[in-house]
Design a protein around this nucleic acid. Structure first.
Length: 301
RNA sequence: GGGGGUAUCGCAUAGCGGCAAUUGCGGCGGACUGUAAAUCCGCUCCUUCGGGUUCAGUGGUUCGAGUCCACUUGCCCCCA
C-alpha cells in the first residue's frame, strides 16, 4: 500500500491524496461503507459499484463477524474476503476492537486478549493480538487493523490510561505476529495501528507518539464517536493529526455524521467509516441539505 | 329449504363470569457514529385526568356480561 499526498488546503488542515493497494486506488478523503459480514447491508452491489452512484473505492469488513460466520474455512476456500464477497476493490477489516466495546456484556478482557461469547451461539472464542492477525491474514483484506480496546465513554482517567497501555502492548504483539507471517493470497496487506487514550489530551499525545514507533502505512484514531461531546472529538482529532506524519493517511474510526466528516477532514483526516448511512438508511433516515428526513413517515411517500 | 359455525379498538388475533380488554401488523413520533440493529423505545377509543363510553344489534340471567341465554342482522361451512 502506498499513499501520495497530492494537495493541502491552504485555509484548513484538509488534504487530498491517493492510496494505492493491490486491489485498486482509493482517493482520499474517503468514506468507507461498512460491510461487517462481507456485504454492505441494504445497499445493492451495483449501487455500490456504479460510477454514478456510491462508487465505493473501498469497503469495510469485520474480523469478529467474519470469523464467526462464515468462518475461516469458508473464507480461505473462497480465496479470502475478495473471493467470498465477489468484490475486487480494496477492503479494510476492523480487528474486533470495537466489539470489545460494543459487546462488553458478553466478553472477558485480560492482557492476554479478549474471550468473547459468540452473539450467535454463545460459544467461547479467544481473540489475542496474535490470533487477530492470523484471522486477518485468512480474511485477506488490503488494510487490516491492530487489535485494540475501544474504550467507552465516559471513561475515567485511570482506566483510559491502563487500557491505552494494554492497547500499546497489543500493538507490539500485532506487529510482531504480522511481521513473522505472510499474506495468504499473494497480495500485500497493510497493518494500521490505532491511537487510543479516550478524551485525555496527555494520553492521546502519548499514544500518538507511541504508535509512531511502528513504521506503518497509515495511522488510525480510535475510541472516539462513542458518545463524547463533539468538541472533545474534534479537539482530540486535531491533537492527534498534528502529531501523526504528514505523508501517511489518517483514519478516524467510526465517524460519522456528514457534519462530523467535513469538520474532521478540515482537521486533517483522510479516511472514515461509519454504520450511520447504512443503518440509518435501513431505518428510513435520509440526510439532506434540509436536514434529516424519515422516509418511512407517510408525508414523504 | 335443512343443519352447523362465527361476529372484539384500521386489519389480524387473545379472551371461557371481575376487562378499557392480549398479541402481531399497520399508523404516528423518536433513537441510531470502527453494526448482537431491515433493530430498539414511546404513543395509537374519548377525556377538563375526576372520569366517560366500548367487544354486530336488542332484550334477558347475574352483585357483576366481550364472556352465559333468547331473538335479530351480517358473514362462513356442510347437506339438499
Amino acid at each position: 500500500m502506498n499513499f501520495v499526498l497530492q494537495h493541502k488546503d491552504p485555509f484548513t488542515k484538509a488534504r487530498a491524496g491517493v492510496i494505492d493497494t493491490a486491489h485498486g486506488r482509493i482517493q482520499t478523503p474517503i468514506f468507507m461503507p461498512v460491510g461487517t459480514a462481507g456485504t454492505v447491508k441494504g445497499v445493492h452491489r451495483n449501487f455500490l459499484l456504479n460510477k454514478n452512484d456510491v462508487n465505493a473505492d473501498i469497503i469495510l469488513g469485520n474480523t469478529y463477524h467474519l470469523y464467526l460466520r462464515p468462518g475461516l474455512d469458508v473464507l480461505q476456500k473462497a480465496g479470502g474476503i475478495h473471493g467470498f464477497s465477489n468484490w475486487d476493490r480494496p477492503v479494510l477489516t476492523d480487528s474486533g476492537g470495537y466489539q470489545v466495546y460494543s459487546l462488553s456484556g458478553t466478553r472477558k478482557l485480560t492482557d492476554e486478549g479478549v474471550k468473547f461469547a459468540s452473539h450467535i451461539d454463545g460459544s467461547k472464542h479467544l481473540f489475542s493480538p496474535e490470533r487477530v492477525m492470523d484471522i486477518q491474514r485468512v480474511i485477506g483484506a488490503d488494510i487490516i487493523m491492530a487489535f485494540d480496546e475501544c474504550t467507552p465513554y465516559p471513561c475515567d482517567y485511570e482506566y483510559a490510561q491502563k487500557s491505552m497501555h494494554m492497547t500499546h502492548r497489543w500493538l507490539d504483539r500485532c506487529f510482531a505476529r504480522f511481521n513473522e507471517t505472510e499474506p495468504i493470497y499473494g497480495h500485500e496487506q497493510a497493518l494500521m495501528p490505532i491511537v487510543q487514550g479516550s478524551v485525555y489530551d496527555d494520553l492521546r499525545k502519548q499514544s500518538a507518539e507511541y504508535v509512531l514507533k511502528h513504521d506503518a502505512q497509515g495511522y488510525a484514531i480510535g475510541g472516539l464517536s462513542v458518545g463524547e461531546p463533539h468538541e472533545d472529538m474534534y479537539r482530540i482529532t486535531e491533537l492527534v493529526t498534528d502529531i501523526l506524519p504528514i505523508d501517511k493517511p489518517r483514519y478516524l474510526m467510526g465517524v460519522g455524521t456528514p457534519e462530523n466528516l467535513l469538520n474532521a477532514i478540515a482537521l486533517g483526516v483522510d479516511m472514515f467509516d461509519c454504520v450511520m448511512p447504512t443503518r440509518n438508511g435501513r431505518n428510513g433516515n435520509v440526510f439532506t441539505t434540509e436536514g434529516i428526513i424519515n422516509i418511512k413517515n407517510k408525508q414523504w411517500s
